[in-house]
């Protein structure tokens, strides 16, 4: 029963994360130009990497979503998801620390200013995503250790 519950909960975590990454990637993949503006506003990447990142990052999110749905390369997908979510959270906090009120570009390529309330929402949302990704990564690696 416990194992069955764990299997189901890990599957649910996979699907939820998959939906999150698919939504994030799909909303930006067709408008790399707009997403590039958001990345440029972050003022972190050098100019020559902005277009490339705007093109490949949404694709990576979609590929990861497909891997999470299908279960292929799952260990990598779980670890990458965790790394990306932690990085995104870090960037949002970095922006707050700098006092910049720019769009996070998480699920949209529309560049709008973000209010403080929106930033709090972004952080809480990211923490929830990180918890799901951590649970999945832990579950996958723990199960693997059990089997080996």
């Amino acid at each position: 029963m416990d194992t069955e519950f764990k299997t189901h909960s890990l599957f649910t975590a996979r699907i939820i994360l998959g939906i999150i990454f698919f939504a994030a990637g799909f909303s930006k993949v067709f408008s790399p130009s707009s997403f590039a503006e958001i990345i440029a506003n972050y003022q972190i990447l050098p100019g020559y990497l902005i277009n490339e990142t705007a093109f490949f990052l949404p694709l990576l999110e979609i590929v990861m979503a497909l891997m999470l749905f299908s279960g292929l390369f799952l260990e990598g997908a779980a670890v990458l998801a965790l790394i990306m979510l932690v990085s995104f959270g870090g960037l949002i906090i970095f922006n707050i620390a700098r006092g910049l009120n720019i769009s996070c570009g998480c699920f949209t390529s529309v560049s709008e200013e973000a209010t403080n309330l929106q930033y709090i929402y972004y952080i809480i949302r990211d923490i929830i995503f990180i918890l799901i990704a951590s649970y999945l990564a832990k579950g996958i690696f723990f199960t693997k250790t059990d089997n080996s």
Binding site: L60, M64, M67, F73, G76, A77, V79, L80
Partner: peptide, 8 residues
């Protein structure tokens, strides 16, 4: 997990 990440 590194191999998987690389393939992704």
């Amino acid at each position: 997990f590194i191999r998987d990440s690389f393939f992704i």
